[in-house]
Design a protein around this nucleic acid. Structure first.
Lengths: 221, 221
DNA sequence: GGCCAATATGAATGACTGTTCAGGGGGCTG
DNA sequence: CAGCCCCCTGAACAGTCATTCATATTGGCC
């Protein structure tokens, strides 16, 4: 038995995309996302990716130094875009920590519903990067977590959040991790054909987040 | 470059375990868990696993039909034990939905803190199983989710839960998924050296779960 | 038309893979 | 002691892989 993810006998029944119109770099990126998401980095071969763009193996190396670098490229680009969007959403949400938290969760969940493939690759295949590259990603993740922690700290200080305590003390980092795990893994099961729209998912998750940290109801205007 | 997860130059600096004392089947299972968790199923070779038990490749096939079957074996055993423990915890928690939910989350989180390696493999490597085997696992996962959903339904009916709504309707399945994602992925970042003990994690997560579904405070005795 | 740089090809390289199997023990029971 | 069964070994098999490179082929510009 050869190492190939089951469930798909031949790689793709060869749609043999006849030389995509996009710039080849973009075509390669897109094909890599799709294939990595579906079958996993280590079993997707360079030949698979290039065939999906209508090229042959060797051509990859005109655009990327290696298969590793291709993975790093697509992961870092989605990760940094995620970080950017989160910061932007929080910055544009006004002063109230409740509004900031809701804005964060809304954008985060919406993105993870919409860009499931990208999120899935970035979260599942990160382990194949070498030490230095993986450290970059983890730093960005920590930065995102710390955005949440700051919102929590602020909310607690102002008395609008009353998060659950462990033995009388707050552990806001653990709560932030719990919230992020919850929101991130939406990309593993959400499908646009399901019961909820992306918008509804975002609202539901924002609501749950506010409950988790014991947010006081917004004052009647 | 060969396909090997980075960060560890040689497989293990060859501890060359000199013929484990346990039954070989158990030694193989344990070695497989450890290696799959650390480096991922497709890049861990049969030779790696067997070397870690002080045996050679061929000996695997005296105990398992294939590398696939080995993975299936270790995943299904942990999955069914998880399902069993969840059911048991809920059954032994009395009648109040709040107590049931808390008991479920406590056992689930505690297990995912304690058996991180097993949980990680069962959750990350499931995709390598063939269609039939993977269906089994998913059925068990759905069963676990439905335990939660039943608790929610009961709690809503009795008026002790007031879960967040989307456009005026409950979607208890989505809430159950969110809760499970949160609790499952504790195994990805929790470490016993951190700020919280397993017990404290369990309490914190149970608290958050009750908040998420809008549980009414327990009546003063 | 002539030229050049960018890009694609596909064979070749050297390595690794899961699995099989003929050949050996080791330690029981009779 | 023989006979037996269980288990292990290590070579062999038929395939896979990422990467390199000499050889085309392009498309734009003078």
């Amino acid at each position: 038995m050869t190492r190939r993810k089951p469930g798909r006998e031949e790689v793709e029944a060869s749609p043999v995309v006849e030389r995509e119109s996009r710039a080849p770099v973009e075509a390669i990126r897109a094909a890599a996302f799709a294939q990595f998401a579906e079958r996993g980095y280590p079993v997707v071969t360079v030949r698979d990716i290039m065939k999906a763009c209508g090229l042959t193996q060797g051509a990859l190396y005109n655009h990327f130094k290696s298969k590793d670098e291709l993975l790093h490229d697509i992961i870092t680009s989605t990760q940094s875009e995620l970080e950017r969007q989160c910061k932007q959403a929080v910055a544009g949400a006004g002063d109230d920590p409740r509004a900031k938290l809701a804005a964060f969760v809304r954008i985060y969940v919406m993105r993870h519903c919409r860009l499931r493939v990208e999120a899935l690759v970035a979260n599942r295949e990160i382990g194949w990067l070498d030490g230095e590259r993986v450290a970059d990603i983890r730093r960005s993740r920590r930065a995102i977590r710390d955005i949440l922690v700051s919102i929590f700290v602020d909310g607690v200080k102002r008395g609008v959040f009353e998060p659950p305590q462990v033995d009388g003390r707050n552990d806001l980092k653990a709560i932030a991790m719990a919230l992020l795990d919850q929101c991130t893994h939406v990309s593993m099961w959400y499908g646009p054909g399901g019961d909820l729209t992306e918008e509804q998912m975002a609202n539901l998750y924002a609501d749950m987040a506010l409950r988790m940290v014991g947010a006081q109801p917004f004052p009647p205007t």
